[in-house]
Amino acid sequence: MYRLFVAIDLPSDIIARLQGLCGGVPGARWVQPEQMHLTLRFIGEVDGGIFQDIKEGLGSIKAPAFSLQVKGLGFFPPRKTPRVLWAGIAPVEQVSGLRNRIENRLIGMGLEPEGRKYSPHITLARLHDTPLARLGRFLAGNSLFATEPFLVSEVHLYSSQLTAKGAFHTIEASYSLQAG
């Protein structure tokens, strides 16, 4: 079985900027730099035959390259106990359009649609018993966080292996986006 997802990798300078945020929040389990990415579609577990179909099928998606910026911070779920601290992106339209192409291709191949609304973000930390006041101060202190824009020219199909030491991600295939 393969546990799959499709994602955009972040340039190393963007990851370094995000890493600079990782501290000062009690109860936060910070994401390792090599696991920072922008998930477009979590696929889940599939067998080897479906894995090959997905790997080939995603290659038929045509989409333009685009510029993206990491901008803003927040947490999930809103209005409930915070569980995930995230960085947002701007603009959202190109990412959502690409994600919809991927989603439609996967549905066309017989996979179930993703059940929840897509909310593009980069997970920075998983939160456990984090005091809301401390999280609020962290968010207020970093409210103007934004990186320089960067070019998104490819997406990747990843497999993820869960271990006692955390998840290990492996690129299974890469797909180029067309130059604008």
Results as ranks from 00 to 15, higher is better:
M1G: 15
Y2N: 04
R3T: 11
F5C: 07
A7C: 14
A7P: 06
D9K: 08
D9G: 10
L10T: 11
P11D: 08
S12M: 04
S12W: 05
D13H: 06
A16V: 02
G20I: 10
G23R: 11
P26H: 05
A28N: 06
W30L: 08
W30R: 03
W30Y: 09
Q32N: 08
E34W: 04
Q35D: 11
H37L: 13
H37T: 13
G49C: 05
I50E: 11
K55I: 00
E56D: 13
E56P: 01
L58I: 01
S60I: 02
A63I: 04
A63G: 06
P64S: 13
S67K: 12
L68E: 05
L68S: 05
K71Y: 12
L73H: 05
G74Y: 02
F75E: 04
F75R: 10
F76A: 10
P77F: 01
P77W: 01
P78A: 14
R79L: 04
K80W: 00
P82K: 03
R83Q: 10
V84G: 14
L85W: 05
A87R: 01
G88D: 03
A90M: 06
A90E: 12
S96Q: 09
L98C: 15
L98R: 00
I102N: 00
R105K: 11
E112W: 02
P113F: 09
R116C: 07
K117T: 12
K117R: 09
Y118P: 00
Y118L: 07
S119P: 00
P120S: 13
P120D: 13
I122D: 02
L124V: 13
L124K: 03
L124D: 11
A125M: 14
L127M: 14
L132A: 12
A133H: 09
A133R: 12
A133N: 08
R134V: 12
L139Q: 07
L139G: 14
A140W: 07
A140E: 06
E148M: 05
P149R: 04
V152A: 12
E154H: 03
H156M: 11
L162R: 09
A164N: 11
K165N: 10
A167G: 13
T170D: 01
I171G: 00
A179D: 09
G180I: 10
